[in-house]
Simulated scan of single mutants.
Amino acid sequence: MPDAPINLAIIVGSVRGGRFCPTVADWFARQARAHGGIEVELIDLLDHPLPLIMPEYEEPADPATQAVVDALTAKLARADAFVVVTPEYNHSTSPVLKNTIDWFLDEWKAKPVGLVSYGGMGGGLRAAEHLRQIFAEVHATTVRDVISFHNQFSEFEKDGKPASPEGSEAAAKSLLDQLLWWGNALREARTKVPYTA
């Protein structure tokens, strides 16, 4: 394992009132910190409100928006890999998450993305599949495995821990192993040859 840890940004992909997303994101962050070889940064999109309307090309954003963009740009650029925690809303991901992806381009390029989904009987898997298509378009690569919590309210205890930790912890380890491999490989590749699109 390389000496330099992978910088993993875990994105809390919902801002809806009463959201469950932070519970899942906090659980995964604990798994990542315990894994080894990874530095974790939690990015809650509630703390980074981006407007739905983007400025025209070459036109600067208003100062308040520019401050949010600058702060989020730094966090995303610093990351070697991402985990996106997403609910499923109407067979897809949340509007705020799609909007955030659309605001940026270079920060996603040639980096791996892990997907953790939750929601109802489908466990958020339709949202995860939509995100695979979206991230491919911004030149990020999603890893094979996904973690999915079906009927999430019954899957977690009140203390934020999964009701069946053995299966979820094994799934988290597998996803983190893949992200670590891809994160190291792509970081080394980006260092040797700048990625172009």
Results as ranks from 00 to 15, higher is better:
A4F: 10
A4S: 14
L8P: 06
A9E: 00
I10M: 05
V12W: 05
S14V: 10
R16M: 06
G18A: 10
G18P: 07
F20H: 04
P22I: 10
T23L: 07
A25M: 08
F28G: 05
F28A: 03
R30M: 14
A32T: 00
A32F: 10
R33F: 01
R33W: 02
A34I: 08
H35E: 06
G36D: 11
G37S: 01
E39N: 15
V40N: 02
L45H: 09
L46T: 14
D47H: 13
H48M: 15
H48N: 10
P49D: 06
P49R: 12
P51F: 05
L52V: 12
E58D: 09
E59W: 12
E59A: 11
P60Y: 01
P60L: 03
A64I: 11
Q66C: 02
V69M: 10
V69H: 03
D70S: 08
D70A: 09
T73G: 00
A74F: 03
L76F: 05
F82V: 00
V83A: 07
V85W: 01
V85I: 10
E88T: 04
E88F: 05
H91Y: 15
H91W: 12
V96E: 13
L97S: 09
I101P: 03
D102N: 11
L105D: 01
W108L: 05
